[in-house]
Simulated assay, not measured.
Amino acid sequence: MLIYIIILFFLLICCYCENNKAFFYTGIVILFILAILRGEGVDRDYETYISIYGYLINGEPYTIEPTFILAAYISHYLTGSPVLIFFVFALIAIYYKSKFIITFSPYICLSLLIYYSNFYFVHELTQIRIGAASAIGFYAIKYLVKNEQRKFIILVLFSSLFHFSMVILLITLLFDKRKINIYYILTIYCLIIAGYLLIYLNISPLRVLQYIPISVLREKLAIYTYQTENGMIEPVNVTSIMQLVRLCVITFIFANSRKFENNTPMVLLSKLYSLSPVCLVLFSSLPAFAIRVSELYSVADIVVLPILATYCKQARMIRLGIVVLTICILLMNLFHNGIVNGYHF
Rank of each mutant, 00 (worst) to 15 (best):
I3Q: 11
F10W: 07
F10R: 14
C15K: 01
N20T: 02
F24M: 00
I28R: 06
V29D: 03
I36N: 08
E40A: 15
T48E: 14
Y49E: 01
S51L: 13
N58M: 08
N58I: 06
Y77N: 12
V83R: 03
L84V: 04
K99G: 05
Y107F: 08
S111W: 00
F119R: 06
V122F: 04
I128G: 01
R129T: 00
S134I: 07
A140R: 02
K142Y: 07
Y143G: 00
K151H: 15
F152H: 03
I153M: 12
L155Q: 13
S159N: 04
S160W: 06
H163Y: 09
M166K: 11
T172A: 14
L174G: 12
L174Y: 15
S204M: 08
V208T: 09
I214F: 11
I214Q: 12
V216I: 14
A222S: 14
I223E: 08
T225Q: 10
T225S: 11
V236L: 05
L247G: 08
F252E: 14
K271N: 06
P277M: 11
V278A: 09
V281C: 01
L282M: 09
S285A: 07
L286I: 03
F289T: 05
I291P: 03
S294N: 06
L296N: 08
S298W: 11
S298R: 10
I307S: 03
K313V: 08
A315G: 12
M317K: 14
L320Y: 13
G321L: 09
V324A: 09
T326W: 01
T326E: 05
L331T: 09
L334D: 00
I339E: 01
V340N: 01
